[in-house]
Structure formats: C-alpha cells, structure tokens
Amino acid sequence: MLQVLLSGLATGAVYGLVAMAFAVVFYVTKVINFATGQLLMVSIMTVSGLSAIGVPVWLSIVAGIALSTGFGVAIYYGAVAPVLKVDRTGFGWLVSTLGVAIVLASVAAMIFGPTSRAFPALLYHHSIRLFGTSTTWQEMLAVIVAAVVLVAFEVFRTRTLFGKVGMAISGDPEMATAVGANATAYAVIAFAIGGLLAGVAGVLVGPITFANPYLGDTYGIAGFIALMIGGIDKPAAAMGGGVLLGVLSVVANTYINSQASDWFPFVVVVAVLLIAPHGLFASGNLFARWLGRGRRSAELALPAVRS
C-alpha cells in the first residue's frame, strides 16, 4: 500500500508541476496556455538531443529548461498578447495556443524523428529503500522538487511585494494597472514561470518516459485534468490536484485493473466538476461551499473568470 502511495506521489508530483505551470499563467492572465505540455516536451527533447551529441548532462539540462522558459515567454508575445489586445473576453487564445502546441510537436518530430529517443538516466538507476518500499532517487527528487516549488511559490505570492501585486492583478487587472502595476511585465513573468515549471517537470520525468515529441499531449492533458481537480484559482491548489491525480491513477491501476488509469481520472474530474466546479482545493473551503454558500460565492468568483 505504501509502495502504491509513494509511486503515486512521485507521478503526481510531476503532474502537479505541470498543473502549476498552467495555474500560474491562468492566475495572472486568465489565459490557459494549451501548449504547456509541449513546453515540457521541448525541455525533454533538448536534453536528449544535446546529451546525445556529447554535451555534458548538466549543461543539457540547463539548456533544456532555459529553452522551455524562453518558449513560454515567446508564446505570450506571439500567440497570447496580440489576441488579448483585440478581444479580452473571447477565446481566441485557446485556438492560438493550441496552434502553437501543434507546431511545436510537429517541428520536434521533424527534427528528432517521431519515435522515442534515449534520455540520460540521471538518478533513475539509483534506488533507495524507504520504510520497506523501494523507489528511485529520481522519483524522490520529483517529490522534493514539487514540495520546494509549492512552498517557495506560496511564500513568494503571499509574503513578497511581487507576489502581492501578482495577486492584485489576478483579482482585478484593470484596477491594478490603474494603481501602477505593470500587468504586462507580470504576464511575461507568469508565462516564464510556466515554461520553467514545465521544463523542470520534463527533466524529472524524462528518464522514465524517454524522449518523444508527442509527450506534450499526454502530460499536457494530465496536467490539465490535475488543474481541474485541484482548483483553477490558486497555483497551490493545482499541485494538490496533481498529487491527488497521481495517487488515484496508481491506486486505480493496482486495485481495479490495469486499464483503470485511463478512465478513473475522468470519473474523478467529472465528479469534482459537478460537486465543486472550482476545484477541490480552491479558495473557500470545500465544506463551506457544500453548505449552500456555494452558489452565490461562485457567482462572485465568476466575473474574475469572465473578464
């Protein structure tokens, strides 16, 4: 049982990082970057490609993460900002980020070929025994990184000036701009952080999945579902959703049957969306919502999403 939980935690940590990448961008800009999964893929492919031609592994990793961060920012300038300028409330960015996702996956397949390539093993071959279960340092690294990112982000958001301005922009972008916050700078930072988180997730999961240009789809959707489960209004909630998704997938696989991880997450996400549409860990306790305050406070939260 503990083995299952631990393995689910490791998988969930990666999902959580991707979900946080989605969430940070959404938090500040109210846009969902559908190319987030592909940013994970960019980092994986870069590391795989560079290390294959002899570049030292640590340098490849730096390059990979730098590239995913850079692409994140590029997506803002190329696909999101122009669309938002024309129409703040429409969903044009949905189509444009999806367009970017398709382009990234196809170009990666053109450069690297469509089949999986090797990825440096990193810490994957070093196993450790914990409380009678066996796992690898790579997976524990994923859990540690996820925890650090979560704590760091929350501290940053609530304790520093940067973070508080970020919250203000998230709540009411026009007001915040009116009092001097540079919404564009924050948007760029948000997209950069999103790319960074996705890139890190890629490095963590690469040794296990190998490097494949179509990984963006798989992890993008997994991260997105984790986001829906955890909550779309706060990045920390997204991490919670990721961990929950990871654990539930492995549990389903182990105790139901080996195909359960396909449909079980959907059952969960549908249930969550019906009971608590803003996510399980969204602001406002789940129980308070349950007790009937839900409708009205949900209505209040909506304008933030609409605009």
Binding site: Q3, V4, S7, T11, P114, S116, I208, T209, F210, N212, Y214, L215, D217, T218, S249, V250, N253, T254, N257, S258, Q259, S261, D262
Partner: peptide, 22 residues
Amino acid sequence: DESITENWSTGATVGLKAEIRK
C-alpha cells in the same frame, strides 16, 4: 495475463509499476 492500454504514439504508458507487484 494482464491487458494494458498503451499510448501508441509516445509509448509512455503510465502504471506499469503497479504490474511489478502483481
């Protein structure tokens, strides 16, 4: 005898670890 749904394009199938125990 276990049936596992695969992701044909990426080959990155989740959940193989649970099989080890079984």
